[in-house]
Design a protein around this nucleic acid. Structure first.
Lengths: 269, 269
DNA sequence: GGACAAAGTATCGCTATGCGATACATTTGT
DNA sequence: ACAAATGTATCGCATAGCGATACTTTGTCC
């Protein structure tokens, strides 16, 4: 069942604070490390846990947490048993979504697409080795946590990821494959480099990419890439459904044109 | 038309850096001020604008921006004309939503509610004088930007706000009214203190609150409060629809029981 | 096309600022 | 009731970050 849920795939390794860059501001990096300590937990954290997670001393953690608390980026858990992220982070979510030009341009297209298909429609954006979901139009069935903004999936084994890789050079694809931590997220996850490359070639030919249960059992997803004017893939549009209602072939025949058309509309210029 | 859109209501005034607190970490406050500079803009910001907005010198802004950029919290705009928030902020969004117990508990109830009503269903959480939307299950019609996570509305003139105030003492209500910047967001916005108090009393009697076009023209919203075990209101569940399809009375009769029931289910314990 | 303006980048010395060490208070569990 | 763990507070030193300034690049106007 729950092969996935908690994990963040390929979250960039906590950027080392003391890299050579002289323009680096320690305290800020520390603050972000503290906030990032929550990425790997499912429950509120104590001060010591935060300190450990973010690799700094108790004192430092204490002061950072204190400050972030004042600012509303960290809160005490409801029953005062630990710390959790604060509501102020949502303000920045809004800013990100509002100011990202791709999200802005894509959203009416996504809404329209959602009207035509009764399945879930997602917009994901590339960040290194992963795709981060930025906009999600849920279908009636799934749980809220299957549709969290900010959730991310690896590129190497997802429909959106392969749609993105289809627009990268072979060398870049190889690098993604090499650098990715290719775990079998479900038994169906394709992790073999050669198979992945084959899937990418397939996506190049079709203009869309397909993934079957590679992230979540029972899930089928089809995706097409969104491109910058210069052709760089920035992310993808996904349509995700359930294998309890569709077989792969029908799903493809039905939704491939729609997802390709939606992406195409956004890639013209 | 677009009375609202861009504005953030009652975003806490940029927390002063040099308040008395000796445990205060400047650099972190600075970082957050820089990120918050985007709250008030609709376009990418230049370094100077960021510096001005966040009330610090060019140098400081430069260094903070540089750092946040390294960490992925700020990015260059697509066509390199300014800075925008970076995708890393979405990681924290996810953490917030995952770790907030109310969001966790409420989401299945919201999904169920959304299945029964064909209108938009929202969960908002209180933050001072405003309600911040944390979960939004959109209906088919509206634009994506009407349903942004992180968007916030003032308490004094919204259905959710009045549902929340219904569970506060009169003194607390008065304080909210007094401290709020009560603008007429639409011509229908109720800004008169006595009228607001009347609406709150009404909400107390009914167990739900109603608002007609006070934020957005043509919008009708009904809400019920979510409470902590001790009775403190933490937020609200909303059902929002369009007056082009409903008259107020029918809307109420139809949805009041549903929203009250949903909130009730969550308030039992 | 050449000059001017505006945005971004880099450098450097001083001191305000944040860290480590440590000790105290408060809560939790057995 | 005691021990262990968590949160809070204090303080002096060294360093990390700020202001001032100057350099480079990019865009715009005539």
């Amino acid at each position: 069942m729950r092969y996935v849920q908690r994990a963040e795939y390929g979250v960039p390794p906590a950027t080392s604070v003391d890299d050579g860059d002289p323009l680096f501001v320690q305290a800020i990096a520390r603050a972000m490390q503290v906030l990032s300590a929550f990425h790997d937990t499912g429950k509120p954290l104590t001060l010591n846990e935060i300190a450990a997670q973010s690799g700094m001393g108790r004192s430092a953690a204490q002061r950072v947490v204190h400050t972030l608390r004042q600012l509303g980026y960290i809160e005490r858990d409801a029953d005062d048993r630990g710390y959790v992220p604060g509501i102020r982070v949502l303000d920045h979510t809004r800013d990100y979504l509002r100011l990202n030009p791709l999200v802005v341009r894509a959203s009416p297209v996504l809404m329209e697409l959602r009207r035509n298909v009764r399945e879930r429609v997602d917009l994901s954006l590339r960040d290194g080795l992963r795709l981060v979901y930025a906009a999600r139009l849920q279908s009636k069935r799934e749980t809220f946590f299957a549709t969290l903004v900010g959730q991310s999936v690896p590129i190497y084994c997802t429909s959106g990821g392969r749609a993105v890789m289809a627009h990268l050079s072979d060398a870049e694809v190889d690098e993604i494959i090499a650098r990715s931590d290719r775990r079998e997220i479900t038994p169906k996850t394709i992790t073999d480099p050669e198979e992945i490359r084959a899937k990418v070639r397939e996506a190049r030919e079709n203009g869309y990419a397909l993934a079957l249960e590679e992230i979540l059992q029972g899930e089928i997803a089809i995706a097409a890439a969104l491109l910058a004017p210069d052709g760089t893939p920035l992310g993808a549009i996904h349509i995700a459904g359930s294998l309890s209602e569709w077989d792969a072939e029908t799903y493809c025949r039905r939704f491939a044109p729609l997802v390709a058309e939606a992406a195409g509309a956004l890639n013209r210029f």
